[in-house]
Nucleic acid binder design. Sequence first.
DNA 1: AAATAAAATTAGGTATACCTAATTTTATTT
DNA 2: AAATAAAATTAGGTATACCTAATTTTATTT
Lengths: 217, 217
Amino acid sequence: MNTLSEENYLKAIFRLSQKSDEKITPTAIAEALGNNAASVVDMIRKMTDKELIEYDKKKGVRLTQQGLKDSILIVRKHRLWEVFLLEKLGFHWDEIHDIAEELEHVSNASLADRLDKFLGFPEYDPHGDPIPKANGKLPKTFTVSLADVKTGASCKVAAVRDTSSSFLQYLVKLGIGIGTPIQVLERIAFDQSLVIKINEQDQTTVSQRFSESILIS
Amino acid sequence: MNTLSEENYLKAIFRLSQKSDEKITPTAIAEALGNNAASVVDMIRKMTDKELIEYDKKKGVRLTQQGLKDSILIVRKHRLWEVFLLEKLGFHWDEIHDIAEELEHVSNASLADRLDKFLGFPEYDPHGDPIPKANGKLPKTFTVSLADVKTGASCKVAAVRDTSSSFLQYLVKLGIGIGTPIQVLERIAFDQSLVIKINEQDQTTVSQRFSESILIS
DNA sequence: AAATAAAATTAGGTATACCTAATTTTATTT
DNA sequence: AAATAAAATTAGGTATACCTAATTTTATTT
Ligand SMILES: [Mn+2]
Ligand SMILES: [Mn+2]
Ligand SMILES: [Mn+2]
Ligand SMILES: [Mn+2]
């Protein structure tokens, strides 16, 4: 069995591997977890011994089969609990991530599957992230961001790349949620800010950082 | 905030204080938690410094106001999660305790209250233990055991004193659950075993240890 | 009251998961 | 290629929460 810290490392490594094809360095993991790189090097040794990961300076950190399986289960639990917290307990969008960060570590062989069934086998979590199935398969992940949309074109919000409450609260303020239609009216050449129309009503200007944090379909 | 270990100590001390009026010694806590008495003495110092408990060799360990408040919240969360696991996720009677042992440590200001509401404000957990209310008040606790019932008299199972799966599985095998009517037919003088009639049907003999582990109303 | 047993405490130790500071290795720039 | 910067690693350290063995204190028995 994996410790709480090992689970958080597994999840961080999994998310880094999903995010891009770049090799996963100790520094990248350190940044993701808010730890010192020296601590990460310590942990890489322990997790290599446990055969959860492989580390090669050239290839970076890779999950082993076991490590991949374990990390997918943690992500599955995290996202299922988020659905539960939002839909059943009525928590707000910006509150659920931190609670799920703790709930994901509760270990019981059938807990995830029972929760999944209870929730009606949801495919996506409240942030639009795909919930891994019991067999480990992931529903389609959204990868195109609002920043990629052509000027004049329309799209729908499918997921958010940032789960910080400052970002999510900003979205609430703008009236944007999963499924909200957005039209890109103008792209400011100077800093790639976008003038957008939200839900066919309000018009606002948003920064590049903002538009890159929204995934669309 | 309290660490996971501190929370488990708080809960153990709370349960010992509920169980009887005897003073709570380091040895008693050690036994309850399966720790060495030396470790308990260490922790008593830390928790005294944090003003969660008071320790006086004459009076034993006592919870401070803060310690009492904190421990009641943990017990509240434990028992609410047990109801959730049994009623909503369909776990069995003997599986829920260990999972709730982990879930009780998830910390969020409104989690317990939202869960309570979602479950319809249950008064007792699946083992018949009272669930502390949001204000800290406890519903009536059952204290009379099957061993106290007069020969010939009838009663109903209200709660179980032991949540081990060996005990709970034995109860399932005997067809005994919360609310099951039991009549005491005979008391064996030799070892205080009881001959009982379950649910007005089956007749069995049970040990003293068994009858002391069942609370009745 | 003395002897004995039990409980509490102290002393010294371990594994986990972090840290900072120093050093070494690797990548990038000039 | 040398100089410089960045990344990785090592060395040595800390807090937490445990442990065993030895000692001291308290309670119980004779
Ligand atoms: Mn986590
Ligand atoms: Mn999410
Ligand atoms: Mn616990
Ligand atoms: Mn219970």
